[in-house]
Structures are given as structure tokens and as C-alpha cells.
Computed example of a mutant assay.
Amino acid sequence: MSEEELSRFIKKVKDLNDLVKSLEKIPSRKALLASCKNHKEVIILAKSWGYNIGRRWGDE
């Protein structure tokens, strides 16, 4: 894993952890997340909250 890939990986994990913490602070988000029918909907919803979790860390 290159340094750049490692940085992307760490950033994605941070964004995912921050998203989970936001569910505790804003409980209504849990229902919105649960209502997503597929991965794409989760990515779009998370992005609307400011979390960029769609790109896989190894992708260009």
C-alpha cells in the first residue's frame, strides 16, 4: 500500500467513524440510513451530511 493509498484509507475510516458518531448526536439519521435500499443511496445520503464514504481507498 502506497502512502497515498494509506492516507485515503485513514481518511475513509475517519469519515465512517464520524458518521457513526453523528448517529448518536442526531438519532433521526438512523431511520434515514435504515431506509436506504442500496449502497448508492447510503453514499448519497452520507454525502448530504458531509461524509465522503463512496470512494474506495484503493481506487483512482
Rank of each mutant, 00 (worst) to 15 (best):
M1F: 10
M1Y: 08
M1C: 06
S2H: 07
S2W: 07
S2F: 07
S2C: 08
S2G: 05
E3R: 15
E3N: 11
E4Y: 12
E4A: 14
E4K: 15
E4T: 08
E5H: 13
L6K: 15
L6V: 05
S7K: 15
S7Q: 14
S7A: 13
R8Q: 05
R8Y: 04
F9D: 02
F9R: 15
F9Y: 13
I10P: 00
I10S: 06
K11S: 04
K11A: 08
K12H: 07
K12G: 01
K12D: 01
K12A: 05
V13N: 12
K14E: 02
D15M: 15
D15P: 06
D15K: 15
L16S: 03
L16R: 09
N17M: 12
D18R: 15
L19N: 01
V20R: 14
K21Y: 03
K21Q: 07
S22C: 10
S22T: 06
L23M: 12
L23D: 00
E24P: 01
K25H: 03
K25D: 00
I26P: 00
P27A: 08
P27L: 13
S28F: 12
S28W: 11
K30W: 06
K30M: 10
A31D: 04
A31G: 04
A31E: 09
L32S: 07
L33N: 05
L33I: 13
A34L: 14
S35L: 13
S35R: 15
S35Y: 09
C36S: 11
K37M: 14
K37S: 11
N38E: 05
N38D: 12
N38A: 10
H39I: 06
K40L: 08
K40M: 05
E41C: 13
E41G: 11
I43G: 01
I43H: 07
I44T: 09
L45Y: 12
L45E: 02
A46N: 02
S48Q: 14
S48Y: 10
G50E: 01
N52D: 04
N52P: 00
I53H: 05
I53D: 00
I53K: 00
I53V: 09
R55Q: 07
R55K: 14
R55C: 03
R56D: 00
W57F: 15
D59F: 11
D59Y: 12
E60L: 14
